[in-house]
Simulated assay, not measured.
Amino acid sequence: MLDWNDLKYLLAVARHQGTAAASRALGVNQSTVQRRLVELERNLGQPLVQRHSTGYRLTSFGEQLLPLAQQVEQAVVALTQHVENFLRDVTGVVRVTCPEPLVYRISNSTLLDRFRSRYPALQVEFVTSDRYLDFAKGEVDIALRSGDTNDNALVGRKVGDSLWAVYASPKYIARRGRPDSVEELERHDWVGFDDTMAQHRAASWLAQVAPKAHFVARNNSVLGLVYSAKAGIGLAALPTALGDAEPDLVRVLGPIPELARIWRVLTTPELRHTPRVAALFDFLVDEVEALRPIITG
C-alpha cells in the first residue's frame, strides 16, 4: 500500500534535482531518500525518476504525479496549521464530575501530568459527586459515569468496566464471620446508602437479595461506605477498584454480576466540539489503557 509519507521524498528530489540535495533539505541521509523512492516506485508499479549526468529528473509518470503530490503536501500543511491553531485555542477550565474516590486515583496517577504537558493552558477542575450533575444547567462539561444513564442527549465512549463486590474488615469477620453465599447476606450487619442514594443499583440489589438486611449505618457516598466498612461495623458493597486497594478490607463475595456496569466518558453534542472539552474528552479516550486500571482496579 502507498505510504503517503514517501511523497515528500519525490517532491524533494523534484525540487533539488538530486538525492544528495534532497537529503540535506529533509535532514536525512541520502540512502534513506533513495530507499524511500525505490519503495514508492515499487508500490506504484512505475519508475518515477531517472538519473542523468546533471542529476535526477522525473519520468513522464513522475511529472504527472508531481502536481498531485504537491496538493497532498498543501493539505498536510493546512492540517498541521489547523492543529496548531486548535492547540493555541485550548485554554480555560474543563469541569469534570466523577465520584470522589476516582479523583484521588486519577490525581495520584501520571494521567493529569501528561495532559498538562500537552495542554498547559487548560485547567481540569473536578466536581465530586455520587449523584448525576446536570449538563443543561452548566454544572459540568464532562462526566465519568458508571452504570446506565437516562439522558439520551449525551454522547460518550466506553473507557472501562465497573465491578462491585462485598467487603468486610478483618475485625468484622472475626466478630461475625463471613458470608459464603448471597443467601447468607441477610444474617449480617450492613453499611449502605441513605435515602438520597436509594436509586443506586447497589441499594436496589441488596433490597432484592436481602430485603431484611440489618443496617447499622448509612452514607450518601461510596467513600463513606468505605470508611464505615473499614471501621468494622458491617459489610458493604463497593467497587472493586476501591475495595481491593484497601489493606483493611477483605473481599468476601463477588464480583456481583448484577452490579456490573460500564464506565463512560460523557458530554453533550454541543460541548463535544468545543476545543477545551474536545481536548480532554479525546485525551481520555486515547489514554483508555492507562485509565482502565484506575477505574476498574
Rank of each mutant, 00 (worst) to 15 (best):
A121Y: 03
V90T: 15
S109C: 08
L87V: 14
V76T: 08
L112A: 10
D130Y: 00
A78Y: 01
Y104L: 11
T80A: 15
V155R: 01
D151T: 06
L58A: 01
L65K: 08
G147D: 12
V124W: 07
L122M: 09
Y119S: 10
E125I: 03
D130E: 01
S129E: 04
Y104R: 12
E63D: 11
L122V: 03
T149I: 02
D113F: 08
V127F: 05
G92I: 03
R95G: 09
R57V: 07
Y132E: 15
P99S: 10
L122D: 02
N85L: 14
E100Y: 07
F61K: 07
L68R: 10
D130F: 00
Y119C: 06
Y56K: 03
A75H: 04
R105W: 05
G147F: 12
Y56S: 02
F126H: 02
Q74H: 14
V72T: 09
C98Q: 13
C98V: 10
V83E: 01
T91L: 11
T91G: 11
A69N: 13
Q81P: 05
V103L: 07
P120K: 07
T149R: 12
V90Y: 05
L58M: 06
L112N: 03
Y119F: 15
A78T: 08
V155D: 00
F61Q: 03
L102N: 07
R88H: 15
D148E: 13
Q64L: 09
V72C: 08
